[in-house]
């Protein structure tokens, strides 16, 4: 009897515990899904109202999908106003600043981690301390500097600022990767008579291509979304980027919700598409570049 009841008693307790664990698990799971819904629903709502006209937005339930989606909202904002111009500016400025940042950061990281010279840890320190400087504390002198150099209202001021402020993060992400590169490769290259330049461009850069892609994506997100520099330095429409352009555009069309929704969707779609395609790399890059807040 004793032998027979003991397993039964035990399995009862085990079951009870399993049920408790199961309930706890379900509750936690529901909690996690709830957080996900909170994160995603504002964007779903944005997509839905970008396809409605004002009457539908104000009279229909918030999440009801219109019978006839107003795709013309997108066509209208793209063709009227300067959204197309802002879009092109954003692409160009983002791409140029990104390419410069990744190249310059690679140069610096290479010189600091692989070459031998006095003061390299001090120089690296200068770049790392740059991570702690609040952008806003540099804004007034930068504005007056660019004013003196006649670079306000010029994409050059924007690109220079983006490169300077993104160099520290980019170098930080590259550092770990460069420290881990095997020395033997360089030794072999030098014995073969390679110059430092050939080695850097032919051997090192290709070897770091995966981490370069990560830094490129992080740079892309920062540059695409940047607001304060463009808002402060650029005054004419022909140089404005999408973030600032969208802000001004919406200021003029405060009452047409469908147009506002379509404008916002256009401004976030490129990033969302890149995220859908490369989410693993972005997740990894954001975790690696986490010092920038």
């Amino acid at each position: 009897m004793k032998v027979a009841t003991a397993p039964g008693y035990n399995s009862g307790r085990v079951n009870e515990r399993k049920i408790l664990q199961g309930t706890g698990y379900t509750l936690m799971y529901l909690g996690l899904i709830l957080v996900a819904l909170v994160q995603i629903f504002p964007l779903v709502w944005l997509l839905i109202f970008s396809l409605k006209n004002n009457q539908e937005i104000f009279n229909m339930a918030p999440f009801s999908i219109p019978a006839h989606p107003h795709w013309e909202n997108y066509v209208n904002v793209w063709t009227n106003g300067n959204i197309a111009q802002y879009f092109v500016n954003s692409v160009l400025i983002t791409a140029i600043a990104l390419a410069l940042t990744v190249l310059l950061a690679s140069f610096v990281t290479y010189a600091v981690t692989r070459m031998r010279w006095k003061g390299r840890s001090f120089v690296l320190g200068l770049f790392m301390v740059g991570l702690m400087i609040p952008v806003h504390s540099t804004l007034i002198p930068l504005f007056s500097l660019f004013l003196k150099l006649h670079l306000t209202d010029s994409p050059i001021s924007i690109i220079l600022s983006y490169v300077a402020f993104n160099l520290p993060t980019t170098i930080m992400i590259l550092l770990g990767f460069y420290y881990a590169l095997p020395k033997e490769v360089e030794e072999a290259a030098i014995i073969d008579g390679c110059s430092v330049n050939t080695m850097f461009f032919r051997i090192i850069l290709p070897m770091t291509s995966s981490v370069l892609a990560t830094t490129a994506i992080i740079n892309m997100i920062y540059n695409w979304n940047e607001f304060i520099f463009v808002n402060t330095f650029i005054s004419s429409d022909k140089y404005k980027t999408l973030t600032v352009g969208v802000q001004n555009f919406i200021g003029q069309y405060t009452t047409d919700w469908g147009a506002i929704g379509a404008t916002l969707m256009i401004s976030i779609l490129p990033i969302l598409i890149v995220f859908l395609l490369l989410s693993d790399r972005i997740v990894e890059g954001i975790a690696a570049g986490s010092v920038k807040g």
Partner: peptide, 19 residues
Amino acid sequence: LRKIYLVPMLLSSVAIAQL
């Protein structure tokens, strides 16, 4: 789930503010 959580972080402050 963690990727979904991250989506708003990728958007510009202007887009988030307007939304």
